[in-house]
Design a protein around this nucleic acid. Sequence first.
DNA 1: GCGACAG
DNA 2: ATCTTGTCGC
Length: 314
Amino acid sequence: MARKAAGRPPEETLSLWKREQALLKTLVVDRDTEAWQRDPAFSGLQRVGGVDVSFVKGDSVSACASLVVLSYPELEVMYEDCRMVSLTAPYVSGFLAFREVPFLVDAVQQLREKEPRLMPQVLFVDGNGVLHHRASSSSAPAGFGVACHLGVLTDLPCIGVAKKLLQVDGLENNALHKEKIRLLKAGGDSFPLMGGSGTVLGMALKSHDHSTKPLYVSVGHKMSLEAAVRLTHGCCKFRIPEPVRQADIRSRDYIRRTLGVQGAPALQPERSKKAQRPKACPQGVSEEPAVSCCVVNCSVKSTWQRTEPTCQSP
DNA sequence: GCGACAG
DNA sequence: ATCTTGTCGC
């Protein structure tokens, strides 16, 4: 059952991935493109989405990809899609998108076909946007993280939200940085993250009054940094923006339910869960083995996926 | 050998 | 990412 971790990809693959990032980076739009983004109260914004991928514990291949859509400003779940997937690419810092994004694009595509009226107007992504490694061969001022990648491939406005600072382009989680964090007073307070080139790559945001660790917000696609930070704050009931938090909770829950049948003994006392309310959504179950393989939506198919047919479990 | 390291 | 229950506090 538990499949072993994939090793580090060969340099050739990393080269292709870098080229792909450089190519798609030219398509990123880092300003507001929708009317609601410029409205002080985000009038016109009704649906915010969140995506996440959770893993089966002793297994680096089996995971659950989830997409949720919440109403705004109520932040109540109106759509949930969880699906077990088999990840083929390993996690390599700087190339997170190549591991997770194909399945997230897939989820968005499913929604587009089956419930287009529920399509979110913006997507919160677990990870960075332009706050990312800069391709050394490119003169572009910013990088291309998973939030940009998903934004370009889906053409949806995206916001990158990372829980830790990615130390790139001169950014360091050093004493000075920690002091700036300490000076953030109330929820909504933030300070810019300036890269070595003088470009603001993102913002450290205190997401609510009693949060110690900030969020690292950066532009993914089709939105300004200012609007991204403001909306992120507006979607935080807790430290993590509700769309991403719900996607995380539900994908982990889905894994527990899926594995609970044969994995855990019959002993399963009721735990005091409070955040489990609405659940009237398609979960893509009933008929399929709930496992999709080798879905690639990139213009460049990775060498990794072609040379490592991991689509079959013994 | 040491430090870095989104998820 | 994942390993983990109860407990202290508002």
